[in-house]
């Protein structure tokens, strides 16, 4: 089911949580709402889910305005960061909940409920935990149960609020791959909120980058990473070095007062000046981190560090030591007017 959001506004007191949001979510896609905390992403998700009301604007599911319907009539599955499982119920009863509270006419008989719940528990690969209580499960297992519970009512839309936020790194990684595979099988229109750019880029079909209640950019993970639309997106997704035109004129000469944004892996290092735009720097720090080597350099007399990432292979072919005098030059950069920042 597609979702259309038009001119949506939401204000909490004097704080504008959502500022004129327009967004189209395609049927069957997995969309990430990405942004720093307080950017309005969770408010947007809760408004779609019916837990919060927008001040103005329209919200359409498949072309139909649903703002007057409350959460239980929207047929939306919601997964919370802290699971929100019913702790006095077994895993089985948690998943069965949505089926048991259906109106009498639509309710399945006990055998059918049992069949469906076990089917869902198999889907999340936790059927063997059916008789346990939530407190006896690990965080990752609880979140998978929460997902199975949300899927039990066969929602047309699945909303996930920082679903992996409370889990440790290893489990988080595993679960997001699993979520991606699951989405490939089920094709439910899904929106998940995250502040973790890696998570958004890895899992989502499209990413919506938000900041201060506004949408900064909508695009595929590749688009938002390779061609950020705004300085904010540049800085939020991936690391970036800033070069002010007044200090490094050759790199951003076409503008008066401008800033060039350069990714750490888009910088070449050489022992001899590549051309007249090359910048003479001194190596301050060398750190090997897994498959990459991070080199921090500073121009003569400058205290601002420039971060450079090299592949280990490349680094090994011409190793650097702290204190070496070298030249750097960007392979790729993007210039923004200073006032746009």
């Amino acid at each position: 089911m597609s979702i259309t959001i038009q001119n949506l506004n939401k204000q909490f007191g004097t704080y504008k949580a959502l500022d004129n949001i327009n967004l189209e979510v395609n049927s069957g896609e997995l969309l990430a709402l990405l942004g720093p905390s307080g950017c309005g992403k969770t408010s947007l998700l809760r408004i779609i889910g019916g837990m919060e009301l927008a001040d103005s604007g329209s919200l359409l599911f498949h072309g139909e305005d649903i703002q007057q319907r409350d959460a239980r009539e929207r047929n939306v599955g919601f997964v919370f960061q802290h699971y929100a499982l019913f702790r006095h119920m077994t895993v089985f009863e948690n998943v069965a909940f949505g089926l048991r509270v259906k109106p009498k006419k639509e309710r399945h008989n006990e055998a059918e409920i049992k069949r469906r719940v076990h089917e869902l528990l198999n889907l999340v690969q936790l059927d063997f935990l059916a008789d346990r209580y939530p407190s006896q499960l690990s965080g990752g297992q609880r979140q998978r149960i929460a997902l199975a519970r949300a899927l039990a009512v066969e929602p047309k839309i699945l909303l996930l609020d920082e679903p992996f936020g409370a889990l440790d790194a290893q489990v988080r990684k595993e679960l997001r791959r699993w979520l991606r595979r699951l989405h490939n099988d089920l094709h439910i229109t899904s929106i998940f909120v995250t502040h973790d750019q890696e998570e958004a880029l890895e899992v989502a079909d499209r990413v919506v980058v938000m900041n201060k209640g506004k949408i900064e950019q909508v695009g595929t993970p590749d688009e938002v990473y390779a061609t950020p639309a705004t300085p904010f997106v540049y800085q939020f997704i991936g690391n970036v070095n800033l070069f002010h035109s007044r200090d490094h004129a050759p790199w951003s000469d076409e503008h008066g007062d401008a800033v060039a944004y350069v990714r750490p892996h888009d910088i070449d290092i050489s022992r001899v000046a590549q051309d007249e735009t090359a910048l003479a720097v001194e190596v301050k720090l060398v750190r090997a981190i897994g498959s990459i080597v991070r080199v921090e350099v500073a121009a003569d007399g400058s205290s601002e560090f420039i971060e450079i990432e090299l592949s280990r292979e490349r680094f090994d072919s011409s190793p650097l030591l702290e204190g070496d005098k070298v030249f750097i030059r960007p392979r790729q950069f993007r210039v923004f007017e200073a006032e746009a920042i």
Partner: peptide, 27 residues
């Protein structure tokens, strides 16, 4: 009893009475 738990129940289609009877009262 977090508000989230009640919201979860509501999103699963439970009415107020179901939420009280099945979620809040047992807790």
């Amino acid at each position: 009893v977090e508000a989230e738990v009640e919201e979860a129940a509501a999103s699963l289609g439970a009415g107020r009475w179901d939420v009280f009877r099945r979620i809040i009262f047992p807790a």
